[in-house]
Every structure is written in structure tokens, then in C-alpha cells.
Amino acid sequence: MIEFYPQIKWVHVAAVMSSGLLFLLRGALVQFGHQRVALAGPVRYLSWTIDTILLTAALMLLSILPGAFFANGWLITKISLLILYIGLATVALRSPSAARRRSAFVAAIVVFLYIISIARAHHPLGVFWQWLM
């Protein structure tokens, strides 16, 4: 399956970008008072479809990678932050409090960007790893 690594990684990266952009759009809609549109069925189903593709590609990449990739903890850090991101995104889209939605929206974007920096650096400190070297 290693021969398909570049294609699977491309699908994974495309799904990450699609998922992030869709969340950014949905979060902006909620922030501007269009929660009904952001939470409408077709938009939710599109989000679930993209996230399913993202998770499937991630699991395929995980099955291809050698065990050494687990040595420094960057994948564990990414997965842990992903759980935090999902929680923040849920609050950002569904909280009855406008202030809480706004704070969670900004925090979710920061966590999302940090997850990307970890993936690019292949290090648990992500972008901060470069500053320490």
C-alpha cells in the first residue's frame, strides 16, 4: 500500500483544507447571526462527508507509516488536539451564548492551525519547534 502513499496524503491534505474552510464558513455564518443556515442539513451532511474522508485517509496513512513515526509523539499530540478542536467547534456552532461562541470559534481556529503546524513539522511543538532550534 506504500505505493499509494502520495495519493492518500493528497486526499488527506485536501480534506483537511476542505474541512477547515467549511468550519470557517459555518463559524462565520453563526457569528453573523445565520445559525440556521450554518446548521442546515445539507451543510452538516457535507461536513460529515468531508470529515469521513479525512478520517479514512488519516487511518490509511497511519496503517502505512512505520512504527518509528510514533516515537516522538507528534501523532498523539495531533490526535489529542483534534479532540479539543472538535469540542471547541461544537461550542462555536451551537452554544446559546454569543460570547462563548465567539471565544470558541477563535480558539478552534488557533487549535486547527496548530494541528497543521504539528503535521508539517512532524514534531509535537509544531511551529514552536523551529523557534527552539
Rank of each mutant, 00 (worst) to 15 (best):
A40W: 05
V106E: 06
A58G: 09
L21V: 12
Q31T: 11
L55E: 09
T49V: 10
L125W: 10
I2H: 06
Q35A: 11
V37Y: 05
A57E: 05
R100Y: 06
P96H: 08
T56E: 01
L75D: 03
A57P: 05
L59R: 00
I118W: 05
A89L: 10
A57W: 10
Q130T: 07
A71G: 04
I76N: 12
L113R: 12
W129T: 13
Y85T: 02
I116E: 07
I79H: 07
P124F: 06
S19M: 07
Q35C: 11
E3R: 00
V11P: 02
V11G: 08
M1I: 01
E3D: 06
T77H: 03
L29M: 12
P96F: 05
S19L: 06
M133I: 12
L65K: 01
T56C: 13
I53S: 10
Y114W: 10
R101D: 09
S103D: 11
W48G: 15
N72K: 02
Q31F: 08
R44D: 11
H34R: 15
A15L: 02
Q7C: 11
N72C: 00
V37I: 11
F32Q: 02
W74V: 11
L21A: 04
S95F: 03
S80Y: 09
A71S: 08
F4I: 03
M17Q: 12
L54Q: 07
L46R: 07
P124R: 06
F70H: 14
M17V: 14
A58R: 01
L55G: 06
L113I: 03
A108G: 14
R102V: 12
L81T: 04
A68G: 14
R44F: 14
R102Y: 12
I115E: 08
P96L: 04
R26A: 01
L75G: 02
L93Q: 12
V16K: 12
Q35S: 15
G126F: 14
A58W: 02
S19I: 07
K78G: 13
L75Y: 00
L22C: 01
W48H: 15
W10V: 09
A40T: 03
L25V: 10
G67A: 13
F112C: 09
R44C: 15
V110K: 05
Y45E: 15
G87H: 00
Y85V: 03
L82P: 04
V37A: 09
G126Y: 13
G67C: 02
I116C: 13
H12L: 00
L29Q: 08
I79M: 13
W131I: 11
P66G: 09
A14Q: 14
G41A: 08
A119S: 12
P66Q: 13
W129R: 12
G67R: 09
W10P: 03
V16A: 08
L29R: 02
I83M: 01
M17P: 12
W131G: 05
L59M: 04
L93M: 07
K9F: 07
A99H: 01
W10L: 14
S117I: 14
A89H: 09
W48A: 07
